[in-house]
Design a protein around this nucleic acid. Structure first.
Length: 576
RNA sequence: CGGGGCGUGGCGCAGUCUGGUAGCGCGCCUGCUUUGGGAGCAGGAAGUCGGGGGUUCGAAUCCCUCCGCCCCGACCA
């Protein structure tokens, strides 16, 4: 392509509304323009780059025997009512009516639709397994879209769905996807981690997220560099650091003491002189409306996700002040497990074996000391706590760290949720009708791009991996009025095209500085500069990532460039 | 949904407190010069000051109201 004919509206200044690196650069480099909150138009460069990502995805999906299909983004409500999700999903779903008043929604995922198709077509175990995938728009009415393409209301998803006869079949499909995803993200040049994840409202047993570590990310993952343990924060289980001071020995009796106006752990801790880790944090919660008390070490944070899993509740919330007062007769700052009436008590494992602790007395203005779990109250122990930086890996005992990350992919073992609720059945070897077991697998295409930008940006712009950059190389004549330079650049451009290089010719009537800045900004991995040395038959090859240059003979450049492209092209590493 | 910020040529901003001819930088157009890291000079085009209502002789500026965008939190398949 010739740059003079393209619309690449680069900006000199950072747009005021952009905060994170990828958002700033996508706008500045002329990749995207915003239509509205969470809705973006992809201009030429973004589309080119996204097309390359999709191409890699298609190749790897095809390689595991997946079949590309396409289903409408607009869904009738009926199928969603069959699975129960029409009701289960709240404001995140875009809902609308057609002219007859029939309810529809914009697809946010497609389990229902593919199950609907499968139900009409699959009759026999001989037709399984099946892997279907598509790449299409998804819509989610995010309460707060943010950070450019990171969190939007319309995005492109590669979603696939598998149908198998049994758990072993599903496991094989899941592993195929795991490997395909590794190959895809490898080839896109991402530095990523596959982490154990919580399957959430999607249902199902096992799930794994593909995370790109980045300060701009919105998810937390926990990693033990020494042992290789990795999990989403919602799921990570670690050993806590020991309490700041050991518990007093002996079996001292319960003792109430006054703590007027001291409600938070910090206030009480400062008041009584014992560190937060010697306190029990008591949180009154409502699990699907039912009251319960969650108990944690004073310096720990409750994981609502873990609490939900532990209780089997679908919705967990903090109790309202009036509820706490009604259930316990004390304000939120003074509640505790001793004498908590018939509230269910759930205690975090870090409290197991502790003694002589401090907690609320269920009486306003009072706390209790010398509280020992097991003696003074009975609670069910479970892992309820959010893992922290500096905790220890359970298996190896080595320290873990928390990292922010961008979720680029997620694979789920769904189980029978959709085949059962929607009546998808095939006959097995014995002629008996059974529900196939399903899996679903997603990749956020734009997030692959944002992740790559976040991981490959510097002070002058982005430097995308050659596999997903909008162009592999740009030929830059320094001075178009110099006919030797102009003609050499034209020849080189055609020659590189012929050699199969995805090349751009910067034939704009701009000064060299402007061309260099723009090329750096939009992140083209290689630049061939045709300048004054052309008289000696020399051009210059510059690599965006290292910003290093070397001279090369015009006649050699095609060979040299294709060789370098091959050398820096990310390849799939062999991960199990 | 709670809290905060912002809305002025394409982009970045000043002007608003204290009402009085709408400005600056970049970009854009024309011409000349320049030509290896966002050129110089000269000339030029371009703004319902987010929308509506009000106060006033007069509103970007004061008042009311609505809308939009960004950030923090809540939420998040």
């Amino acid at each position: 392509m010739r740059w003079s004919q393209l619309h690449v509206p680069t900006l000199r200044d950072d747009p005021a509304e952009a905060e994170v690196v990828s958002h700033k650069l996508l706008l500045r480099a002329g990749y995207i323009r915003q239509l509205s909150a969470g809705l973006y138009c992809y201009l030429y460069l973004a589309k080119r780059s996204l097309n390359k990502i999709e191409r890699i995805i298609r190749q790897e999906m095809d390689a595991i025997g997946a079949q590309e299909i396409y289903t409408p983004e607009l869904h009738p409500a009926d199928v969603w009512k069959e699975s129960g999700r029409w009701q289960a999903i709240g404001g995140d779903m875009f809902r609308l009516k057609d002219r007859w008043g029939r309810e529809h929604c914009l697809g946010m995922t497609e389990e229902e639709v593919v199950t609907f198709i499968a139900r009409g077509e699959l009759r026999s175990y001989k037709q399984l397994p099946q892997i279907w995938y598509q790449i299409q728009a998804k819509f989610r009415d995010e309460p707060r879209p943010k950070s450019g393409l990171m969190r939007v209301r319309r995005f492109t998803m590669k979603d696939s769905y598998t149908f198998d006869m049994d758990a072993a079949g599903l496991d094989a499909a899941y592993k195929k996807h795991y490997r395909a995803y590794c190959r895809i993200f490898d080839r896109c040049g991402l530095d990523y981690l596959a982490v154990d994840a919580h399957s959430g409202a999607m249902g199902g047993s096992e799930s794994c997220e593909f995370m790109v570590p980045s300060p701009a990310g919105e998810d937390w993952i926990v990693e033990c560099p020494a042992s290789g343990y990795r999990a989403n924060l919602e799921k990570a289980v670690t050993t806590a650091k020991p309490p700041a001071v050991p518990d007093p020995a002996g079996d001292a009796g319960l003792e109430e003491f006054q703590t007027p106006g001291k409600k938070t752990i910090e206030e009480v801790s400062e008041f009584d002189g014992c560190p937060p880790s010697s306190h029990i944090k008591a949180m009154v919660m409502a699990a699907d409306g039912k009251p319960l008390m969650a108990l944690l070490r004073g310096d720990h944070q409750l994981s609502e996700t873990k609490l939900a899993v532990e209780t089997g509740a679908t919705r967990i919330r903090s109790a309202h002040a009036e509820e706490i007062d009604q259930w316990l007769g004390a304000g939120a700052g003074y509640v505790g497990p001793v004498g908590a009436g018939d509230l269910t008590l759930l205690a975090d494992s870090a409290l197991e074996g502790r003694r002589n602790l401090i907690t609320g007395a269920n009486r306003d203005g009072y706390h209790l000391r010398n509280v020992t779990p097991g003696r003074d109250f009975q609670a069910r122990f479970a892992d309820l706590r959010e893992a922290e930086d500096g905790d220890f890996d359970i298996a190896s005992g080595e320290p873990v760290r928390r990292l922010k990350a961008i979720e680029v992919g997620h694979i789920f073992k769904l189980g029978y949720k959709y085949s059962a609720s929607m009546g998808l059945k095939v006959l097995d070897e014995n002629g008996k009708g059974v529900n196939p077991i399903m899996g679903s697998y997603g990749i956020g295409v734009e997030r692959v791009l944002t992740g790559a930008i976040e991981q490959n940006a510097d002070s002058v712009g982005m430097s995308l991996p050659v596999s997903i950059a909008p162009f592999e190389a740009v030929v830059t004549p320094v001075n178009l009025k110099n006919s030797a330079q102009r003609e050499a650049a034209e020849r080189l451009y055609r020659q590189l095209e012929t050699a199969g290089v995805d090349v751009l010719l910067d034939d704009r009537a701009e000064r060299a500085g402007v061309k260099f800045k723009d090329a750096d900004l939009i992140g083209i991995p290689f630049r061939v500069t045709v300048g004054r040395k052309i008289g000696d038959g020399l051009v210059e090859l510059t690599e965006r990532r290292t910003r290093e240059s070397r001279d090369a003979a015009v006649g050699e450049i095609a060979k040299l460039l294709t060789q370098r492209i091959g050398e820096v092209m990310p390849v799939a590493e062999s991960r199990n």
